[in-house]
Design a binder for these strands. Structure first.
Lengths: 156, 156
DNA sequence: CTCATAAACGATACAATGTATCACTTTGTA
DNA sequence: TACAAAGTGATACATTGTATCGTTTATGAG
């Protein structure tokens, strides 16, 4: 039984997105235009492995308007290409969605994000779902931990 | 295998709070003063079964300042007596924590909150935790569904 | 290629949800 | 009862977005 973590529900869609890595192409296939701003934002997000906030992206891309950054992020969320990951402090990060279903871990000290995947959890959740009144449309799950680096770090 | 749902991690504390229902007494035991405002807010929260937003509370209690409502909610969160429950739309509700560990369901149509508890999930999560690099300090999990009422309702 | 049109954009105002500040009030206790 | 610490209210501010609207750009028809 092993692990890597992921936030399942960008927009409560349980289906994983197609295994293409060219987000822009996917957007175009969905009828969205390929603009300089979208290319810039998507390019940057793809390079950021470890999660980011919207403001962070806006700051690092002064050539793209703040509103457009938010619009693009919203678009990618809706298209299921981004996950919105709640942090312990009430804030949250965005992180690229992977094709395979998984969940996320967040270090409560340094905020580092990890992923895990565990078929047992999924199976149990499905079983629970079949017992619940109503129709399950998704789930969300995060593990909070103190990562190895923080455990080893001297400072409290 | 049955169910009822709950947000585990108010402040990432895995321990359930003591099975007393007198929140005010608990606060006092922790050294907090019993003020008119806290009594009013806590009293109201205890009566609200189905979750609430901070603004909702502030509006219904015009005699208590807005800042104090937020302060009290923050206090109760820190003390582990409230859960902060993320909603599909990015907003969230607060809901009283129960003594027993459980998770929450949220209807993505009407926002109704349910609870479930399932020992298998907890066991699996513990097992995953022991495999992860780092020290697990808590987890969070929500199921999103369309509740029976919404399924039966005529409107789409 | 060029133009019309819908889509997207930027600037900016606004909204929602909280937090910080600080002078004032209340609580608990010596 | 009086005092210090804790708590409060009013208000300003912070963060994270969304709405508006006039301008620019991508795209596809001709």
């Amino acid at each position: 039984m092993f692990s890597s973590y992921r936030l399942l529900i960008p927009n409560f869609n349980t289906a994983p997105r197609p295994p293409s890595s060219d987000l822009l192409a996917i957007l175009e296939d969905q009828g969205y235009r390929s603009t300089y701003q979208r290319r810039t934002v998507v390019g940057m997000l793809e390079r950021k492995g470890d999660g980011f906030t919207a403001e962070e992206v806006a700051e690092e891309l002064p050539k793209v308007g703040r509103a457009t950054v938010y619009r693009t992020i919203k678009l990618l969320l809706k298209a299921g290409m981004l996950c919105k990951l709640p942090l312990p402090n009430g804030a949250h990060k965005y992180i690229m969605a992977r094709a395979e279903h998984h969940h996320h871990t967040v270090c409560v000290r340094c905020g580092a994000v990890g992923e895990f995947r565990n078929s047992t959890v999924e199976r149990v959740l499905r079983a629970i779902g079949s017992d619940m009144p109503g129709e399950i449309v998704g789930h969300r799950m995060e593990l909070y931990l103190i990562c190895r680096d923080c455990l080893n770090a001297p400072a409290e």
